[in-house]
């Protein structure tokens, strides 16, 4: 799964810390999602999409190997 979180977050003007606070998570979690080390749960994915006013389909993309 490819994560576009970093690009969209920067476009929206949020820092990792701010975004983490908005979704009730930690900066480490946001960092891990951005670097593809961790895939968030559906709840967290939806929260991220809501805060960033976008769709989960824009945030995450399935890859051919998925």
């Amino acid at each position: 799964m490819k994560s576009n979180l970093k690009t969209i977050r920067i476009q929206s003007g949020y820092t990792q810390e701010e975004l983490a606070q908005k979704v009730g998570s930690s900066r480490q979690t946001v960092y891990a999602i951005e670097t593809g080390k961790f895939y968030p749960s559906m709840v967290l994915g939806l929260k991220l999409a809501q805060v960033l006013a976008t769709s989960v389909y824009d945030l995450f993309e399935l890859e051919a190997t998925d």
């Binding site: 009730g24 998570s25 930690s26 979690t29 891990a32 961790f38 968030p40 749960s41």
Partner: peptide, 9 residues
């Protein structure tokens, strides 16, 4: 202190 789903992971 930052317990969330990443820490669970």
């Amino acid at each position: 202190k930052n317990e969330d789903e990443f820490i669970d992971f």
